[in-house]
């Protein structure tokens, strides 16, 4: 089996605190983002290395409450090593993300689609039984239930139809913006279905591009949405010095220590190559003219 699906939740009684149903993931890799997001609030972390991927969705409320009346949450973790036939369609994970992200807009985030689907697949008595069972729950059981929850989610257009392409490698946008959320889901689709390397993150403790400096990585493009940010539209994250506004060649990123600069990008933007080629159409005649002048002047000067 190449796809591991983990679900963390809690039971009603006091002593049945949060735990994974069955064995949890090997490593709590999501904790790397602990300074950038509060896991009890809506969070999405998708990482792909181009072959396998891992996804983390948290802060999903259940309709269940614990014995003292506190809302119970779900956390989902999906990990795929990229070897063999996936046991869960990557498109199903995209659907989960799309659904959770779509609930982050509007006045009342978390309007309930994912909550209903998960509660349907994990009824209260069965969750209690799974958490109390002396034998760990079979991984296939957890996986089957999550897949059933995905099937119960409202169908949507394919992730990319109508979704704008931000046209940047690393960007931050406000989670309250519908086009930004659509662009985010599009990036997730590229990571999971097209198996491109990179990361797509819904974080809740960031407010501006400067908060993301530590997460920039030349080998892994980064798309971030966050609630209540200071950015007007999708904003490029970058470390390069130089004029803002021209497209950025991914390979030209200088070392991490340079200051972060950012620019608000028009939305929807075209591909990265367009602005670069436009720049060249302006620069090429200038460079040629300069070369001609130098060629003319050189013999004069050397005389």
């Amino acid at each position: 089996m190449v796809t591991a699906v983990h679900v963390q939740t809690r039971g009603r009684p006091r002593h049945r605190d949060y735990g994974f149903l069955g064995a949890g993931p090997e490593r709590p890799w999501w904790r790397e983002y602990a300074g950038h997001t509060a896991f009890e609030r809506p969070t999405v972390l998708v990482e792909s290395d181009g072959a396998g991927y891992r996804a983390y969705l948290s802060g999903i409320p259940s309709a269940r409450r614990d014995a003292v009346g506190t809302v119970i949450r779900y956390t989902l973790v999906v990990e795929e090593d990229g070897v063999g036939v996936p046991a869960v369609e990557p498109a199903a994970v995209v659907t989960l993300v799309r659904c959770w992200v779509s609930e982050q807009g509007g006045p009342r985030p978390g309007s309930g689609g994912l909550t209903r689907a998960l509660d349907g697949a994990f009824p209260e008595d069965e969750v209690e039984r799974m958490l109390a069972a002396p034998e760990p729950v079979a991984p296939a059981d957890v996986r089957r239930r999550v897949v059933a929850a995905v099937r119960a989610l409202p169908a949507a257009d394919p992730a990319r139809s109508g979704a704008p392409d931000v046209g940047e490698r690393d960007w931050l946008a406000d989670a309250g913006s519908a086009p930004a959320r659509a662009a985010f889901v599009r990036r997730v689709d590229e990571l999971l279905v097209d198996r491109r390397p990179g990361r797509a993150l819904l974080l809740n403790l960031v407010g501006s591009p400067a908060d993301l400096t530590a997460l920039l990585d030349d080998t892994s493009p980064l798309a971030v949405i966050a609630p209540d940010t200071a950015v007007a539209g999708p904003t490029r994250l970058g470390r390069e010095r130089g004029p803002v506004g021209a497209g950025k060649a991914p390979s030209a990123a200088p070392p991490r220590t340079s200051p972060v600069i950012s620019a608000t990008l028009p939305m929807p933007a075209r591909t990265t190559s367009r602005p670069v080629s436009r720049l060249w159409t302006v620069l090429t005649p200038l460079v040629l003219a300069l070369a001609a002048v130098i060629a003319l002047l050189l013999p004069l000067l050397s005389r």
Binding site: Y18, R31, A38, E40, G69, T70, V71
Partner: peptide
């Protein structure tokens, strides 16, 4: 006052 609406902490901070 719905005290339960405020979920508890999930990580150290």
């Amino acid at each position: 006052f719905d005290a339960g609406a405020l979920g508890g902490s999930q990580d150290q901070f």
